[in-house]
């Protein structure tokens, strides 16, 4: 899975942190850990989230996935609302907690062992089925809509993953840009500190 992860091997956004405003720097650097103990997720739930996140964001690196996990825990333990929720879908805390139980049950039903012990292909096939809302019938799906469960898991994970500075470096994103801003914004132009491609790459 760790093929060419970046077109910008020489770029490290954290080298620019001195140019960021203090408030932004504090927010971004906290994503590097260490993270406090989970407030909502239980041990087994955290392990499942960690494994599912590997598949959703297509990455194995513990330091990044730990942040994804931390963000998930933060989201689920926060009193802040969830913007929108489809009628008939339970609150996110219930959706995720009961949803993870249902995923384990589905794994056992289809393959024997619980989710964490089945093969990667089997895990992916369960996630694909949930995404499409086509998992084998179980009474749980009446209260835990499959697609809503998948979407909540995936968007929360992806939001955290693409907020991690290591990932920003890899995709060549300029990241925080205040107070400096950009001077050269037109086609083909870059400011000296922006990500530059490997000269050998076409």
């Amino acid at each position: 899975m760790q093929e060419i992860r970046t077109r910008y091997p020489g770029y490290d956004i954290l080298k620019e942190e001195d140019h960021w405003d203090e408030h932004t720097r504090e927010i971004v650097l906290k994503r590097l850990g260490p993270f406090p103990e989970h407030k909502f997720l239980k041990h087994h739930e955290a392990q499942m989230i960690f494994t599912i996140a590997q598949h959703i964001v297509y990455d194995h690196r513990k330091e990044i996935l730990d942040y994804v996990l931390h963000h998930m825990d933060n989201t689920l333990s926060s009193p802040v609302g969830e913007d929108q929720r489809k009628t008939g879908t339970p609150e996110q805390k219930v959706l995720i907690r009961e949803g993870l139980k249902a995923i384990d049950k589905l794994a056992k039903k289809q393959y024997g062992p619980p989710f964490l012990e089945i093969s990667i292909e089997q895990q992916l096939s369960i996630l694909t089925a949930l995404h499409k809302g086509l998992a084998p019938p179980m009474k749980e799906w009446q209260t835990i809509p499959q697609k809503a469960l998948f979407k909540k898991l995936a968007t929360t994970m992806v939001s955290a993953y693409y907020s991690h500075p290591t990932v920003w470096s890899e995709i060549g994103y300029g990241g925080p840009a205040y107070p400096r801003g950009y001077v050269r914004v037109e086609r083909g132009l870059t400011d000296p500190w922006e990500a530059k491609r490997d000269a050998n790459e076409s």
Binding site: I56, Y58, D59, L124, K151, T155, V158, S163, I171, A195
Partner: peptide, 29 residues
Amino acid sequence: ARPLGLAKNLVSKAGIWGQKLYDIMRDYN
């Protein structure tokens, strides 16, 4: 577009995740 906004829309509105999402985002620029 910025990375979070783009990736979140890809997963939640276009249903793209996993390696496919990763491949698109690697070419974000």
